[in-house]
Computed example of a mutant assay.
Amino acid sequence: MIYVDNNATTRLADEVAQAMADAFAVGYLNPSSQHQLGQKARRRLDDARETILSILGGEITKFLGDRLVFTSGGTEANNLALFGLGHETAGQVIISAIEHPSISEAADRLRAFGTAVRVLPVNSEGVVQYDQLDDWLTEPTRLVSVMLANNETGVIQPIEEIAAICRDRKVPLHVDAVQAVGKIPLDFSLLDISAMTISPHKFHGPRGIGALMLDDQVKLNPMMFGGSQQLTMRPGTESVELAIGFERSLQLAIETLPEAGPRMETLRDHLEASLLQELGDERMTINRGMIERLPHTSNVAFPGIDRQALVMALDMVGVACSTGSACASGSSERSPTLIAMGLKEEVISSSIRLSLSRTTTEEEIDEVAKRISNCVKRLRRP
């Protein structure tokens, strides 16, 4: 089986598995315990937290500085941002039309609680249009949330421009950076945002842990109660082993990025070119225009072919891919991202997502292109 569904999750790197195995062998205990064994676990957990903060461009000071709140994953971190920063009946929350379900559905819940929710549109290339943002911020606004790069198309969003507007209006900006971390260079301090979501299983780290990174000026209201861990912002016993896996996977992702990023982009472009050469541009469309996108993500449409039938056919010939967000897997619902882009129905209904990783090989890409072309041709037959 050739795996090209890395935006859903990535395989755990051997080095990360070893780091976690070593941590389990140490036998770390509850890092909240006051005895020596507990405090040993606390020191190692704090070391991992500070390393992650430092790598991502957080500012660490003696007293507080930027903070990293460990969660169970990206979905919880996004929910914590929306409810922890935006959950007030007074005022409004602003999101984009292409957010991950853990943002868009959380915003729907806020709306049910009485919070006004406004949605920034995107153009046909999937780029958030923020022309109205400055006018919208004249009303009391609790939070703006816009993803750094889309999980389906890979299109990179104008976060710096949006951040400048929010900063001028003194409104917190949360950025879902789950798909971007480890794929493109980024720096929390340079982005000058208030909060950022990270999830290591997208860059060969463990599942079951994520984080919400917070600027030192942000006040976060907790979603959970019953413990003093993480300054009460997210109570519950922390997993030292998962934190160590998070730390090691991020270290590897950043260390390998200068070589891995261009390599993934070359392989992705080769895959698209091979498909275009075999099928022709009348039978295949790349859903992104000429806009900058993540180096490992391709969203392609084969008009006239049902997307789910194609994914199942590919699975049968040994290619693992998807129709979009893994959090909507098993659903026949059309992609909200492609709908927001205003694409034709024949494009929306025939689109699949192909996503690479730093371990993807040229031989795999050649074989994927061949198998996709064969499946598309077979499904087109009357």
Rank of each mutant, 00 (worst) to 15 (best):
residue 63 F to C: 04
residue 333 E to C: 04
residue 376 V to W: 08
residue 51 T to L: 09
residue 20 M to C: 09
residue 185 P to E: 14
residue 84 G to F: 01
residue 306 D to W: 04
residue 283 R to F: 11
residue 320 A to L: 13
residue 225 F to Y: 15
residue 360 T to P: 13
residue 263 R to G: 06
residue 341 M to W: 06
residue 202 K to G: 00
residue 272 E to F: 15
residue 342 G to A: 01
residue 377 K to H: 08
residue 198 I to R: 03
residue 378 R to K: 11
residue 302 F to D: 06
residue 375 C to Y: 00
residue 284 M to S: 13
residue 191 L to A: 09
residue 61 T to A: 12
residue 94 I to Y: 00
residue 362 E to I: 06
residue 373 S to W: 02
residue 201 H to T: 02
residue 142 R to I: 00
residue 274 S to G: 04
residue 300 V to G: 04
residue 270 H to P: 00
residue 347 V to S: 05
residue 99 E to L: 02
residue 257 L to E: 09
residue 100 H to A: 14
residue 373 S to Y: 07
residue 201 H to C: 08
residue 131 D to V: 00
residue 173 L to K: 07
residue 20 M to S: 08
residue 257 L to N: 13
residue 45 L to I: 09
residue 26 V to F: 15
residue 43 R to S: 08
residue 107 A to Y: 03
residue 160 E to G: 00
residue 14 D to W: 05
residue 147 M to I: 03
residue 7 N to C: 07
residue 6 N to F: 00
residue 147 M to Q: 14
residue 170 K to I: 00
residue 287 N to K: 04
residue 62 K to I: 06
residue 30 N to Q: 07
residue 268 R to F: 04
residue 197 T to L: 03
residue 2 I to L: 10
residue 97 A to Y: 10
residue 206 P to T: 10
residue 216 D to K: 14
residue 287 N to C: 15
residue 125 E to Y: 01
residue 271 L to H: 07
residue 326 A to G: 09
residue 311 V to Q: 11
residue 52 I to V: 15
residue 117 V to H: 02
residue 253 A to F: 11
residue 13 A to E: 09
residue 193 I to N: 13
residue 254 I to N: 13
residue 96 S to Q: 01
residue 242 L to C: 07
residue 14 D to Y: 02
residue 267 L to V: 10
residue 29 L to M: 13
residue 243 A to Y: 12
residue 192 D to E: 12
residue 159 I to V: 15
residue 165 I to V: 15
residue 164 A to V: 03
residue 368 V to K: 09
residue 71 T to V: 06
residue 83 F to Y: 14
residue 119 V to F: 00
residue 138 T to W: 07
residue 23 A to Q: 03
residue 20 M to N: 09
residue 43 R to D: 05
residue 289 G to W: 05
residue 50 E to P: 02
residue 144 V to M: 03
residue 242 L to N: 11
residue 193 I to D: 11
residue 34 Q to N: 07
residue 334 R to E: 04
residue 258 P to S: 14
residue 349 S to V: 07
residue 248 R to I: 06
residue 144 V to L: 06
residue 78 N to G: 11
residue 218 V to Q: 12
residue 44 R to A: 10
residue 277 Q to I: 07
residue 215 D to E: 08
residue 298 S to I: 08
residue 278 E to G: 07
residue 358 R to N: 14
residue 23 A to M: 06
residue 152 E to V: 15
residue 249 S to F: 10
residue 3 Y to M: 00
residue 69 V to Y: 05
residue 91 G to I: 11
residue 84 G to C: 02
residue 223 M to S: 10
residue 32 S to T: 14
residue 167 R to G: 11
residue 188 F to S: 12
residue 1 M to H: 02
residue 299 N to M: 12
residue 84 G to M: 04
residue 9 T to L: 07
residue 315 D to Y: 08
residue 85 L to F: 14
residue 96 S to G: 01
residue 85 L to A: 03
residue 102 S to F: 01
residue 304 G to L: 01
residue 39 Q to R: 15
residue 25 A to E: 13
residue 74 G to N: 05
residue 302 F to R: 02
residue 248 R to L: 06
residue 71 T to C: 14
residue 9 T to C: 06
residue 253 A to S: 12
residue 173 L to I: 01
residue 122 V to K: 03
residue 241 E to L: 02
residue 372 I to S: 01
residue 369 A to E: 08
residue 86 G to V: 09
residue 312 M to W: 05
residue 99 E to C: 13
residue 86 G to Q: 13
residue 231 L to F: 12
residue 206 P to I: 10
residue 329 S to W: 00
residue 245 G to Q: 08
residue 200 P to H: 05
residue 300 V to D: 07
residue 349 S to H: 07
residue 150 N to R: 01
